[in-house]
Design a protein around this nucleic acid. Structure first.
Length: 501
RNA sequence: GCGCCACUAGCUCAAUUGGCAGAGCAACUGACUCUUAAUCAGUAGGUUCGGGGUUCGAUUCCCUGGUGGCGUACCA
C-alpha cells in the first residue's frame, strides 16, 4: 500500500481533507440525497443471483418480476442504455437500464450519481441480452447504500497484503475468496455434525488462565485489573477437558482459539483454531480410527472417491491410512537402530545428517529433529506416526509394551502435521513426576516447558478413567481441504502488524 | 530472531548510466439505445513509505526507521 504512511493523498486522512475521489462521491451523495434515501433500512429480495440462474427458464417464461439487491461492480453505458453487473454473495446478474423506460431524472440518477461499489436493489423481468448475458430489465430501482471510497481495480489481483489487511475488499472483489470462507464454515459445521454423531459433547473452557499448560509453547500474558493478577491466554484446552473426563463427562470436545507467542509464517498464526477431543475408556488406537473416519468423511464431502488434489499431489483418503512407528521410520532413513543407540550415537547420527545440535538438546529432542528433517517431508499420503519418545510428551501415557516410549500418534499429510493424540496419562503419581521434571526445565530457562498445575493434579488424583485424547489444527485442515498453501488464505483476519505513520 | 528482495497516482504496475515521474483500470467532461476489461474524444490526479546523507541534480546511490514478500529458525 502506498498510503500506509498517511501522506496527504491518503483517503484515510479523514473529513478535514477528503481525497479527490472521495470528494467526487460526496458531491454525488449531496445531489442524490435531495431525491432519495441514501441509507434505507432494508430491501425485500425475491431472488438471489443463484436462484435466478437456477430457475431462469420458469422465471423468464412466466415473466416474473424479480427484486434483486447487490453491489455495483461495473458500469457500461451506451448513451441511453446502461449495463450494470450487480453482485450478491454467490454471483452476479446484470441490470439493464434504459432511459426510455425510466425517464430522464431516474436515468440520470443511475448514470451519473450511482458509483461502482454502491449497493442497489433492482426490480424487473429476467431476460438474456443478445450476447447471452443473464440480465434484469430494470423497471424500478432503489439505492441501498452509497460507497464513498472506490473499489480496487477489477482486472488485477490485489496484493496479498491488501487482501489480508482489507479483507472486505478481497471478499468484495473475489468470488473465490467468498467461496473459500464459505467452505471453511461448512467444513467446521461438518466436523461438529461428525462429533455429534459420535456422541461427543461440545463444551467451552476458559481462554484466560492463571496457569497455562497442555502444550509446549510460549504464552501471551495479560492482566486482570480487579484481581491484580497475571493471566495467560490459553495455549491448549487439554487440562480443562481432562478435568471434565474426571468429572464423568465421557466424550467431550471443543473447537476454540489457542494463542501461542511464537513466530508467524505460512502455516502459523499467533491465534489459531484447535479442536481437542477426549473420550473415556479409549486409547490412541481408538483415536486413530476416529481420525480416519473424520478425514474420510470430510474428503468425501469434497470428492466422492475420497481423493483430493493438494497442490501438485493427489491425496487419497479412501484407503486405510499408513501407520508407522516413530523409531522404525527413523531406522528406515538412517539405517541405524536408534532405539538401542546411546546419547552419543544419536548425536553422531544427527550430525551426519547435517543437524546442528544446540546446548540443552536432550536425546529425545534430537530424535525429534531428525524426524522432522528426514521423515516428515516424505509423509505425503495420510499417515499415522506412532509411539514417540517419552520426554517430548509429558501428558502421554507410557507405552504398554516398550520402555522409553509413549502411546502417541501424529497424523501427517502433505508433509505437515494435522493432528496429535495420546493415550492420556492418568496416573497422578507419574503425572506429578513429569510435571516436576518439566518444572526443572522451566527453571533452567526453557520458556516452553510446562508449569506444574496443582489443581489439575488434584483433579487427576480424584481418579481419571483411561482416556484417549486428540488435537486437530483446524486451520491446517481447512488449508488441506481447500487446496491452499498459506494459512492467511483460510483466516478471515490473519494477524498483521499495525500500519504506522 | 536472522538473511535476501520490494515499497512510485485510489488499485495493478512502468521509468535506460543519477538528468522533464508514465500507462491501464477507477475518477471527471462530452458522444453513443444490447454492452460485458464496452468504445471514441478530452481533463484532472504524485511528499516516488518516513527521516537523514552524497551530488549541480536522487524514484535511482549511501545510512536509518517502518511495512510487506520469500527463505531460514522455533512452533501446530
Amino acid at each position: 500500500m502506498s498510503d500506509r504512511n498517511g501522506n496527504p493523498q491518503d483517503p484515510d486522512n479523514g473529513p478535514e481533507s477528503p481525497h479527490r475521489l472521495i470528494e467526487a462521491r460526496l458531491q454525488k451523495m449531496a445531489e442524490l440525497g435531495e431525491s432519495v434515501e441514501l441509507y434505507p433500512y432494508g430491501f425485500d429480495r425475491s431472488h438471489t443471483s443463484e436462484q435466478m440462474r437456477a430457475d431462469e427458464k420458469s422465471l423468464t417464461e412466466a415473466e416474473t418480476k424479480v427484486r434483486y439487491p447487490g453491489r455495483i461492480m461495473a458500469k457500461r453505458g451506451t448513451g441511453k442504455t446502461l449495463f450494470v453487473p450487480v453482485q450478491d454473495e454467490r454471483g452476479t446478474v446484470q441490470a439493464y437500464f434504459r432511459k426510455d423506460d425510466l425517464g430522464d431524472e431516474a436515468f440520470h440518477r443511475v448514470q451519473k450519481l450511482m458509483d461502482i461499489g454502491d449497493w442497489v436493489g433492482v426490480e424487473g423481468k429476467l431476460f438474456r441480452t443478445r450476447t447471452g448475458e443473464l440480465s434484469i430489465h430494470v423497471e424500478d430501482f432503489t439505492f441501498l447504500s452509497k460507497a464513498i471510497r472506490p473499489l480496487p481495480e477489477k482486472y488485477h489481483d490485489m496484493s496479498l497484503e491488501n487482501r489480508c489487511r482489507r479483507r472486505y475488499l478481497d471478499l468484495a472483489m473475489n468470488q473465490e475468496s467468498r467461496e473459500r470462507f464459505r467452505r471453511r464454515s461448512e467444513i467446521i459445521a461438518e466436523i461438529r455434525a461428525f462429533f455429534a454423531e459420535e456422541e461427543f459433547l461440545e463444551v467451552e473452557t476458559p481462554v484466560l488462565q492463571s496457569l497455562y499448560g497442555g502444550a509446549t509453547a510460549r504464552p501471551f500474558k495479560t492482566h486482570h485489573n480487579a484481581l491484580d493478577m497475571t493471566l495467560y491466554l490459553r495455549i491448549a484446552d487439554e487440562l480443562y477437558l481432562k478435568r471434565l473426563i474426571v468429572g464423568g463427562l465421557e466424550k467431550v470436545y471443543e473447537i476454540a482459539k489457542d494463542f501461542r507467542n511464537e513466530g508467524m509464517d505460512r502455516t502459523h498464526n499467533p491465534e489459531f483454531t484447535m479442536l481437542e477431543c477426549y473420550a473415556a475408556y479409549w486409547d490412541y488406537h481408538d483415536m486413530m480410527d476416529l481420525m480416519e473416519r473424520l478425514m474420510r468423511r470430510l474428503a468425501r464431502g469434497i470428492s466422492a472417491d475420497g481423493k483430493l488434489k493438494y497442490g501438485e499431489v493427489e491425496l487419497d483418503f479412501s484407503q486405510p491410512f499408513g501407520r508407522i512407528r516413530f523409531m522404525d521410520a527413523l531406522q528406515d532413513k538412517t539405517g541405524r537402530d536408534l532405539m538401542a543407540a546411546d546419547d552419543e550415537e544419536v548425536a553422531a547420527v544427527a550430525r551426519e545428517h547435517g543437524i546442528t545440535l544446540k546446548k540443552g538438546m536432550g536425546r529425545d529432542k534430537i530424535l525429534d529433529e531428525l524426524f522432522s528433517e528426514l521423515v516428515e517431508p516424505g509423509l505425503v499420503q495420510p499417515t499415522f506416526v506412532m509411539d514417540h519418545p517419552k520426554e517430548l510428551s509429558p501428558l502421554a501415557k507410557a507405552h504398554r509394551e516398550t520402555e522409553g516410549l509413549v502411546e502417541r500418534f501424529e497424523m501427517f499429510v502433505a508433509g505437515f502435521e494435522l493432528s496429535n493424540s495420546f493415550s492420556e496419562l492418568n496416573d497422578p503419581r507419574e503425572q506429578r513426576e513429569r510435571f516436576v521434571a518439566q518444572k526443572a526445565l522451566l527453571e533452567a530457562g526453557d520458556e516452553e516447558a510446562q508449569q506444574l498445575d496443582e489443581d489439575f493434579l488434584q483433579a487427576m488424583e480424584q481418579g481419571m478413567p483411561p482416556t484417549g485424547g486428540m488435537g486437530i489444527g483446524i486451520d491446517r485442515l481447512v488449508m488441506l481441504l481447500v487446496d491452499s498453501n498459506n494459512i492467511r488464505d483460510v483466516l478471515l483476519f490473519p494477524h498483521m502488524r499495525p500500519e504506522q505513520s
